[in-house]
């Protein structure tokens, strides 16, 4: 009898655990995990959105081949653009964030105030920021043109198509992206800098180390895990970038600023090519995981 009761209790416990997990698992598997596999299956078909998967539209890896060879999809260009953005983020945005974090983290008057303002752009919708920068970049009445006129860098009356000129559109579109997220990386690194043991700093200082030496030999090595996270976020975020490009240029002029996601949406919504759209999605997932792994490896090697 006793064993029976214990058995019942165990079964009841199992049911309870299952019930507690059920909503989470259903949501997670249904919305995240299953779609990844489905995306991969779709990518092997030439299908529109509501087409069923059939033998007739199964085309193997043709979509992947087409992605890189077709002149009308512009995927290689888009990939290159997003990698360029990743490089700019890692080599310009992150050093700037690190610099700000080191300066604020060493204990300045008003550091909380500076920190809070620097972080503010992160909270504003990228669509709003894009609309604002559209106005800043306005060739005629925009803040940028007017400031350059006032400073006599640009002869008064000369207009520059910041977002309309193929040669500079990409650079112009990148500036707001970098601008918006400097504060985010700075916040992460600042938290790390603040976590460095004061004793360690003090000891180094008593030994006569300068600020630069302390940063280089004590602070930066100890916040390496956070720098790694920042690098991963910056690179995968660049690969996935969409909102600001959509608002500022929508991939134009003449495809100069396409990124993978603008092409994905174009294939999916405008051309109703769910197979090709999924192919781009799969490429993005693979690339994000690939770069995350590589960055992890690089940081491990350095230790």
């Amino acid at each position: 009898m006793k064993g029976n009761i214990r058995m019942n209790k165990k079964v009841k416990n199992g049911i309870n655990i299952f019930l507690f997990l059920l909503p989470g698992l259903a949501l997670f598997i249904g919305v995240l995990i299953a779609p990844i596999f489905m995306s991969f299956r779709y990518s092997l078909h030439d299908m529109s959105l509501l087409d069923p998967l059939t033998k007739e539209n199964y085309i193997g890896f043709n979509n992947y081949v087409k992605l890189f060879t077709s002149g009308s999809i512009h995927f290689p260009k888009a990939l290159l653009n997003s990698l360029l953005l990743a490089a700019l983020s890692v080599f310009i945005q992150l050093p700037l964030s690190l610099g700000l974090a080191l300066l604020l983290g060493k204990g300045m008057k008003g550091e909380r105030g500076f920190l809070s303002v620097y972080f503010m752009p992160v909270l504003i919708s990228t669509i709003i920021i894009g609309q604002l920068w559209l106005k800043i970049y306005n060739p005629d009445y925009g803040l940028l043109t007017r400031a350059l006129w006032a400073l006599h860098i640009l002869p008064k009356g000369q207009l520059i198509q910041w977002l309309g000129d193929k040669k500079i559109a990409l650079a112009s579109a990148f500036v707001p992206i970098l601008w918006q997220y400097v504060g985010y990386h700075m916040l992460l690194m600042y938290a790390g800098v603040k976590g460095v043991s004061p004793d360690l700093r003090e000891a180094a200082m008593l030994d006569g180390a300068t600020d630069g030496q302390i940063n280089r030999y004590i602070v930066i090595p100890s916040i390496k895990p956070i720098i790694k996270v920042s690098v991963i976020f910056a690179v995968t975020g660049s690969l996935k970038s969409y909102d600001l490009i959509k608002v500022l240029t929508d991939g134009g002029p003449n495809h100069a600023t396409e990124v993978p996601t603008t092409i994905m949406i174009n294939q999916l919504i405008l051309r109703n090519k769910a197979g090709m759209g999924s192919t781009i999605a799969v490429m993005l997932i693979v690339l994000c995981f690939f770069f995350a792994l590589v960055i992890n490896k690089v940081f491990k090697k350095e230790d």
Partner: peptide
Amino acid sequence: LGLTIPLHAALVPLYK
């Protein structure tokens, strides 16, 4: 795993 999966992964199947 959910922390690293990009929205893009689900976009098309979810649309359907």
